[in-house]
């Protein structure tokens, strides 16, 4: 098991290095940033001076090494557009995105898993059919359309919920949270539903099909033959086995939420990293763009590691096979 963890850690480092390289390469292909930063009539000497202060005159590989070193020390450079440190901009935007993703993920898990279990157990019920039909909408409608529909109904027509922004936030150290005010919580509802709906329906359908599969298995038949109660069979035996494959997909999907947040944040003008990224693209603000890429990759890698560890916790077959092969 130890060897396995080491191997996974090495893989993660490789992935991060590759992403860092892509993020760095962005700088080379996005046109000359100097053009964005100086006035139209700046002289060649002025441009050259700026180039040198930003370190853009040095060879490619040196720039990359410097870039890596800076990343590791949390120095993400300065925004080409507003000139403030990227780290600071991200620190301002990160809480908004993470809170949105967290609520969307909880929504997807706490609605998706029970709905999947329910529709798996009551395969032929009217309620199950209804839920499956509704879930088709979640899978097939594009996110921005769902967001706009929700805004139309709940913000414009009914006026119950805000159509944009985070509402009031409370500052806890560097972290600005929307969890502590009523308007902050209200503002989270529509965006997190919009963001999480696809994942909710996906998890629900996945849990359902896994559940059906597991319920057909021999050990469930044998559990029935032993006279175990339905509750023990459905939730003790079937659900736990269902979760083994669900964990991977759910983990990947939650990582995906961070990426999908770009669309939701744009629709709801949510002041998070996705929104920041879109603005950065418009202004070819390469340091912001590349830092965003690196951060999102980091979240993916971390989530994958957590998924792997969860696997070990749930499935004894993995735990033992490793330890057996170890001696």
């Amino acid at each position: 098991m130890f060897a396995y963890i080491v191997r996974r850690a090495l893989q993660s480092i490789l992935v991060m290095a590759a992403v860092a390289f892509v993020a760095f390469a962005l700088f080379q292909y996005m046109g000359d940033p100097i053009n964005q930063m100086v006035a139209q009539d700046a002289s060649a000497a002025e441009r050259e001076a700026l180039r040198r202060t930003l370190g853009l005159d040095r060879p490619f590989y040196v720039q990359f090494l410097v870039f890596l070193k800076n990343l590791m020390t949390g120095n993400f450079g300065f925004s080409f557009r507003i000139g403030t440190p990227v780290a600071q901009i991200i620190a301002e935007r990160l809480p908004a995105t993470l809170e949105l993703v967290l609520v969307a993920a909880l929504f997807a898990l706490f609605i998706g898993v029970p709905a999947g279990v329910y529709t798996g157990l009551h395969r032929h019920g009217a309620m199950s059919r209804f839920m499956l039909t509704v879930s088709l909408i979640g899978v097939s409608l594009p996110t921005f359309l769902i967001g706009i529909l929700l805004i139309l109904i709940f913000a414009v027509l009914l006026g119950w919920l805000p159509s944009f922004g985070r509402g009031q936030t409370v500052q806890l150290g560097f972290w600005s949270t929307g969890f502590l005010t009523a308007s902050g919580l209200k503002a989270l509802i529509l965006p997190s539903i919009t963001l999480g709906l696809f994942q909710t329906t996906l998890i629900m359908r996945l849990v359902r099909s896994e559940m059906l599969e597991v319920l057909r298995s021999d050990y469930i038949k044998f559990a029935r033959a032993r006279g175990l109660t339905n509750r023990a069979i459905n939730f003790g035996h079937a659900l736990k086995n269902t979760l083994v494959p669900v964990i991977t997909i759910a983990g990947l999907q939650i990582g995906g939420l961070i990426a999908f947040a770009i669309i939701t944040e744009t629709v709801f003008q949510w002041p998070g990293m996705g929104f920041l990224f879109i603005t950065a693209i418009q202004f070819v603000d390469v340091p912001v763009m590349s830092s965003y890429l690196v951060l999102v990759a980091l979240f993916f890698v971390l989530i994958n590691l957590v998924v792997d560890l969860l696997y070990f916790a749930v499935d004894p077959r993995l735990r033992v096979e490793r330890s057996v092969s170890a001696h």
């Binding site: 298995s217 050990y219 044998f222 033959a225």
Partner: peptide, 21 residues
């Protein structure tokens, strides 16, 4: 309540009759 208590059962495939978890 009768299954397991009054009538037990053994099936064909021991490899898959037990819950692996």
């Amino acid at each position: 309540k009768i299954r397991g208590k009054q009538i037990g059962a053994v099936f064909q495939d021991p490899l898959t009759s037990l819950n692996p978890l």
